[in-house]
């Protein structure tokens, strides 16, 4: 491969970069990790570009590479707990606090925000990835299982466990008030 190939590749992936970055952000929960995952994914994609030529959809192919890179990244991050980023994974809408006056609602919302971030950090990498893909991205369980190379039942169980952890955290928060 030469420099021209690099430029062609970069121009091809440029139109998907925003999508990939946001997907990585939803899975990893912080900007630096998302940036690293996207870079690793694009590097992997470039190295395996010949494999893509047999496929039809670039975004689907890049998506699969990115999800698996993110999973590797989360696993590596888990081994280094000092690097678990406390940044929020998800914005918690005001649903929980909607009935409360503004200052209190903001406080509850911030609590939820922090609680969801914390509980996402306690999830196993597979729980986190499957939950993010199902809940934030709206992917079907079948699609998630195929992307990760796991069984449908396994994917379901990871999602169930993730949901249980979320419920436990948020319902504890609700009952504490």
């Amino acid at each position: 491969m030469n420099d021209g190939d690099v430029e062609v590749f970069l121009s091809l992936v440029e139109r998907h970069r925003r999508y990939l970055y946001n997907l990585a952000l939803r899975i990893t929960g912080n900007e630096q990790d998302a940036k690293d995952v996207v870079q690793d994914s694009l590097l992997n994609a470039f190295v395996h570009l010949q494999e893509f030529e047999r496929r039809a959809d670039l975004r689907t192919w890049l998506n699969r590479i990115l999800v698996n890179c993110a999973l590797d990244h989360l696993r590596a991050r888990r081994r280094r707990p000092d690097l678990n980023d406390p940044q929020p994974i998800a914005d918690v809408a005001d649903t929980v606090a909607s009935s409360l006056p503004d200052p209190e609602r903001l406080a509850v919302s911030a609590d939820c925000h922090r609680q969801v971030s914390e509980v996402m950090n306690t999830m196993s990498p597979l729980e986190r990835v499957t939950f993010a893909l199902r809940h934030f991205e709206g992917r079907s369980i079948n699609e998630i299982a195929q992307t990760l190379g796991i069984g449908n039942n396994a994917a379901k169980q990871h999602i169930f466990r993730a949901v249980r952890k979320i419920r436990l955290a948020l319902e504890t928060l609700g009952s504490g008030r």
């Binding site: 946001n22 998800a90 914005d91 809408a93 979320i166 948020l170 319902e171």
Partner: peptide, 20 residues
Amino acid sequence: TLNAVTPPELVEPADDTLEI
């Protein structure tokens, strides 16, 4: 509970084409 967990707003990534 699940409706309360929403994804972050879509953001525009910084241009790191040079780095890639």
